[in-house]
Write a protein that binds this DNA or RNA. Structure first.
Lengths: 342, 342
DNA sequence: TTGTATGCGTTATCAG
DNA sequence: CTGATAACGCATACAA
């Protein structure tokens, strides 16, 4: 077993300066009521001796970990990395640490992760739900002990937890409307499980836009999968076989849209003349495919910042978290070549 | 200030069962020397009472955190997310937690992150260096206290720290050779700072391949930047102005290669006939651009697994980490349309 | 302004 | 097999 070397404690510093540990503690924590000179001396010797505060002892004593737990479906999406970068910035500034884990889209791992988070006594939890999560019993530990939980993006309606998201319904409505304005009449939608608000809302927005324009919301035009690259390819093959083919495709994420589009392109379909395309998320790849993909842009970075900020404000100022029921961030429609018909 | 509710401790369990806390602790930790019956009773009531071990107290006592620190340049690259996913799998299985942070390619943040990691008493550190890190004084705390540090991908030569990486030299050599085999004679290279082994080695491999084939390694053919998407575009504009233009471009990562290629394509340059392209990393976008990008594939997931495994084995079995100087993983050349000439 | 004393929840040592 | 007790390092109420 690996054995770390001895640590330097506030007692060592106190001994060296003929002071009490209490005074050292107070100085190191910038507490009021310490003589400026002694404080200076303490801070200096602390540095000189290579002192570093032991977080465990401090946490044990204060019952706060200064750590925030983050659970996301996957780390490796552009959107989520942006979210996390935003969270990290805010957390860092406020002296909070982030423990991050991914559920890999399964409720099972999400449960296990939340247990770990709880054991590590995170001060709060920021979570975006897995693909198949259908209840939040695994968060009961947090809720019953008043440890704040905030949902972002893939949210869950709960009495005491704020939600942070965008208006997925409106975004989908607008993008579908845009396709209709381009003259499209048979618009297919590639979506995912209705369990997740983001996908349910995008579908609802799509459907409403069709109905408002007097277009039928034909079930044949609806494709449900997991929105992965592979699923996008399969959707493309499926679409090629449809009779008649749709004249537009609106996919609930860009990766899926792009991979679907590639299949159609390779089959000789003209984009956007024969089939127009729109996605969701503004993944960098949307600007690599040709023609570039029309999509909905929303700032993950800001979502991360906001989520972390709300949580930390609550932890440090005890504003009432329940007052904030949900927080809706801005999005914008980015119209590009994949959907504009001369 | 937010106040969490009271916790259930081993004393509560002990009191309820008329036992001592010691016995409860032993049972809950599966230690030998406890009557099977009492143990069973203890485990059951623990669950019934909703007990959950307090990691701080345990860590304070044992001087081990069961936490591994991970510092990467950025989380939002396909490669790094894969690495982290691999680490998380191994860590999870061994009951270790991961604290993850990103340096955002600056040494400054890397220093601050490593300090946080140290304060949180991580049992070990897995790190891939930032773009401009030119020394590792900030890891001195770890090294002097025998806290194991393992470098991966962006490594650093150090007496006591193992390195995990691929043979960047050979990969670059092979891919350059491939371009030469396709008849290319003026091969440009887009690389990054020589501070980082990965880029220095890729450049060296490229150069050696040229020399071995009797081609001049012309300095005009070398473009140094930060390999970002934007840098790729700028490189593309630069290349368009070169007299004569190179007939191939080998970029040290895919994102840069792809964005450079897009600029050339839009200027009417035929790929690969006029300019052949090769990248590095096998980013998913390499299969989105047309023609698809020739690149070097290496498994980030496995690199993460290996790094975590070596660290945890050392932590739990105290095998001598110094014996492992470096560990070189496999890579493969993926030849695609961007480089194959009729 | 500083010091004393105590407890946070565990685990480890020793004794029974 | 079980119990009593002492740390681990820090922060705080209270005393000086």
């Amino acid at each position: 077993m690996h054995k770390p070397a001895k640590e330097i404690t506030i007692y060592d510093i106190a001994a060296k300066l003929n002071l009490s540990a209490a005074t050292v503690s107070r100085s190191l924590n910038d507490m009021p009521g310490v003589n400026a000179k002694t404080k200076k001396k303490i801070v200096e010797t602390a540095r000189a001796m290579g002192y570093s505060s032991n977080a465990f002892a401090s946490n044990l004593r204060t019952k706060r970990s200064n750590t925030i737990g983050v659970i996301v479906p996957r780390l490796n999406s552009t959107f989520m990395s942006d979210v996390i970068a935003g969270m990290e910035k805010i957390a860092n500034e406020a002296n909070y640490n982030l423990i991050i884990s991914q559920s890999l889209e399964t409720m099972k791992k999400e449960i296990s992760n939340s247990k770990t988070m709880y054991n590590n006594r995170v001060d709060g939890l920021l979570i975006s739900l897995a693909y198949d999560t259908d209840n939040i019993d695994h968060l009961e530990n947090f809720l019953s002990r008043n440890i704040p939980v905030i949902f972002f993006d893939r949210i869950y309606e709960h009495r005491t937890c704020p939600n942070i998201h965008i208006d997925n319904f409106k975004a989908a409505y607008d993008i579908t409307r845009h396709l209709i304005d381009q003259g499209c009449k048979r618009i297919a939608h590639i979506g995912a499980t209705g369990l997740r608000n983001v996908y349910a809302e995008r579908y609802n927005g799509y459907k409403k836009a069709l109905l408002d324009s007097g277009l039928p919301a034909d079930d044949d035009l609806l494709i449900i999968n997991d929105l992965s690259a592979k699923a996008g390819q399969e959707a493309g093959e499926h679409i090629l076989k449809m009779q008649p083919m749709p004249d537009a495709v609106f996919a609930a994420n860009d990766i899926c849209a792009i991979n679907c589009m590639l299949v159609l392109k390779r089959a000789g379909i003209k984009i956007p003349e024969q089939v127009a395309f729109a996605g969701f998320n503004n993944d960098p790849a949307a600007c690599i495919i040709e023609p570039n993909l029309t999509t909905v842009n929303y700032k993950g970075y800001e979502m991360g910042e906001v989520a972390a900020k709300i949580l930390i404000d609550h932890l440090t100022q005890n504003d009432n978290l329940r007052l904030t029921h949900s927080l809706i961030l801005r999005h914008e429609l980015l119209v590009r070549g994949s959907s504009v018909r001369g």
